[in-house]
C-alpha cells in the first residue's frame, strides 16, 4: 500500500485477495461497498431512477422494481427466481429464498450482510449497499414468491414498551449462550461467531429472531411471543445505554480481559514504581 503509483494491476489483485481472506478488516468493508456500488447499485441507478418508488406496501411496481434489483444484485447466487443455486459438487452457492419472507430480506440487506462479496461461511455486518426504498422493493419481491415472516411494525419493536427485567431473564435463557450476557457476542465452532448486538436496531433484532439468519436458530412468535421479543429488545437497549458504574467497561468481556489488565496495568505500574524506589535520587 506504500507505493500506490507502481502498478494498478498489482493493487487490484491485492484488493481482491483482501476481499477473500480479510473480510473483517475495516478496509474490506469500504472495498465491498465500492464493488457493490459498481456492480449492482450503478447498474440499478441506470435502470430505474429511485424517486419513482412508492412507499405503499407491496405495490406491483415495488415488486417489479425489487425483481429488477434482485436480478442484478442477488440472482447470481440465489437464482433468478430466488430458488437458490446448488453447485455440482453439492455446495450451496446461495440458499433458496422462497418462503423466507420480507423480514429475512430486510434483515440481511438492511444490516449490509447481503449482498456478500463472495460465498463464505458467515456474512458480515457491513455498510448497507441499498437505500431504504430499494430494500423495501427487494423485500416486497421476495415476499411475493411465497408467504413468510413480515417486517415487524414500529410499535412491536419499541424498546420503551418492554419489561427490562423480564427481557433480561428471557435473554439469559435463550440468547446469552451465544451472544454473551449483554450482547457482546462470542465465538462459535469452526470460525463462526455470534455477532455483537450493540448498535443493532430493534427492528433487525426482531427480524433475526423470527428468521434465524446464518447459523442462528429460529425463535418464532409461537414459542417466544411478540411481547417477549419486545422485552428482550428493551433489555438489550437498556444495557447498551447503561453506563459502566465501575469505570472503563473493558468490553464487559469478563475474567480474561480482567486478568490481562491486572498483569499489564497492576503489575506493570507497580514494577515501574519498584524500579523508581530502588534507584537513588539524582546524582550530583
Amino acid at each position: 500500500m506504500k507505493s500506490p503509483s507502481s502498478r494498478p494491476a498489482g493493487r487490484r489483485s491485492r484488493l481482491s485477495r483482501a476481499l477473500s481472506s480479510r473480510r473483517r478488516h475495516p478496509l474490506a468493508a469500504i472495498a465491498v461497498l465500492v464493488a457493490v456500488l459498481f456492480t449492482c447499485g450503478g447498474a440499478y441507478a441506470a435502470l430505474a431512477p429511485s424517486a419513482s418508488v412508492s412507499t405503499d406496501a407491496a405495490s406491483s411496481t415495488q415488486i417489479d422494481d425489487g425483481k429488477k434489483l434482485f436480478a442484478v444484485g442477488c440472482a447470481s447466487c440465489h437464482g433468478l427466481g430466488g430458488e437458490g443455486i446448488v453447485k455440482e459438487d453439492g455446495t450451496v452457492l446461495g440458499p433458496s429464498l422462497i418462503g423466507v419472507g420480507a423480514a429475512a430480506v430486510d434483515f440481511q440487506v438492511g444490516t449490509g450482510r447481503m449482498p456478500m462479496a463472495a460465498p463464505n461461511a458467515q456474512a458480515e455486518r457491513k455498510p448497507v449497499a441499498y437505500n431504504d426504498e430499494q430494500i423495501a422493493a427487494l423485500s416486497a419481491y421476495v415476499a411475493s414468491l411465497a408467504p413468510g415472516p413480515d417486517v415487524p411494525d414500529e410499535e412491536d419493536v419499541d424498546p420503551s414498551a418492554g419489561d427490562v427485567a423480564r427481557g433480561g431473564e428471557l435473554f439469559r435463557a435463550n440468547c446469552a449462550q451465544c451472544h454473551n450476557t449483554t450482547g457482546q457476542g462470542g465465538a462459535l465452532s469452526m470460525g463462526q461467531y455470534a455477532p455483537s448486538l450493540t448498535g443493532v436496531s430493534p427492528k433487525h433484532i426482531y427480524e433475526a429472531m423470527i428468521t434465524g439468519p446464518q447459523a442462528m436458530p429460529v425463535f418464532n412468535d409461537e414459542t417466544i411471543p411478540a411481547q417477549d421479543k419486545q422485552d428482550i429488545i428493551a433489555f438489550l437497549k437498556s444495557v447498551e445505554e447503561e453506563p459502566n458504574p465501575g469505570g472503563l467497561g473493558i468490553g464487559r468481556a469478563g475474567p480474561v480481559a480482567e486478568g490481562l489488565w491486572a498483569w499489564l496495568i497492576g503489575i506493570g505500574v507497580l514494577i515501574g514504581m519498584a524500579t523508581w524506589i530502588v534507584t537513588r535520587s539524582s546524582k550530583s
Partner: peptide, 10 residues
C-alpha cells in the same frame, strides 16, 4: 443457563 465467554479468573 450459561453465557458465552464463560471463563475463570486468570
Amino acid at each position: 443457563v450459561v453465557s458465552a465467554g464463560t471463563q475463570p479468573d486468570w
